[in-house]
């Protein structure tokens, strides 16, 4: 409570650097303010990587815990969002590799249940159902991708981050980031296009 109150008292224009310096000197309120600023960014990314709310929340918390533990390692030339997303990326990649199959199965089951529960609440049930079906196919195709492809696709095509940022998050060159995105898009097309083709009604 005291930390939250202290955070509200802080000047609105306080930069990330000032907050980091504050946290480094032992003032936890500075770090809490950083958490409030960037937790949604991390959570959105983690959710798209895992497609599980609980897991995304857990990854978000763990990301900030690790950031707090390694705050002394943060270099000022990097952006805090880039640094925190790099931690989140590593965590997501590790978990995605472990739980790829289990998560996909749970998503399929949960998606099926959700369709039946929400079908009566939409304006155009047929159109909504078609969109849900396509979304399910996309989710299936994205889940089937290796974690490194999924990471760059979400960063570039979902989060719409620029290549410089992606390069900083992945700790590679801009050219390397472009190449990774290109490969990931090819991999997505190889998986998604056959699924979409098969799901279309035959004439």
């Amino acid at each position: 409570m005291e930390a939250a109150a202290a955070a509200t008292r802080m000047p609105v224009m306080a930069t990330d650097e000032a907050l980091i310096n504050q946290a480094r000197t032992g003032d936890y309120a500075g770090f809490e303010r950083l958490y409030e600023l960037y937790r949604d960014t991390v959570y959105r990314f983690a959710y798209q990587m895992t497609h599980s709310r609980d897991e995304a929340e857990d990854i978000t918390q763990e990301t900030f815990v690790r950031a707090f533990e390694n705050l002394h390692r943060f270099r000022k030339e990097a952006k805090f969002t880039t640094w925190i997303l790099r931690i989140a990326t590593n965590l997501c990649t590790d978990r995605a590799r472990m739980h790829t199959r289990r998560t996909a199965l749970e998503e399929q089951e949960a998606g099926g249940g959700l369709e039946w529960m929400t079908i009566g609440a939409v304006a155009n049930p047929v159109e909504e159902l078609e969109q849900e079906r396509r979304a399910g196919l996309v989710r299936k195709a994205v889940n089937a991708l290796p974690a490194h492809h999924r990471t760059v696709l979400i960063l570039r095509d979902f989060e719409e981050r620029n290549y410089e940022e992606i390069a900083a998050i992945l700790n590679c060159t801009v050219g390397g980031a472009k190449l990774r995105v290109l490969r990931a898009r090819r991999a997505l097309r190889d998986r998604l296009v056959p699924l979409l083709r098969d799901s279309e009604p035959k004439k």
């Binding site: 958490y35 798209q48 969109q131 396509r134 996309v138 989710r139 195709a141 994205v142 097309r189």
Partner: peptide, 24 residues
Amino acid sequence: KSCRDAMSLLPAAPSASLGTERLR
């Protein structure tokens, strides 16, 4: 182009309970 359009179909993240107390 269909792949790019399909990415927008991915559902947005639901609201999360990310309180500061839990992190602390």
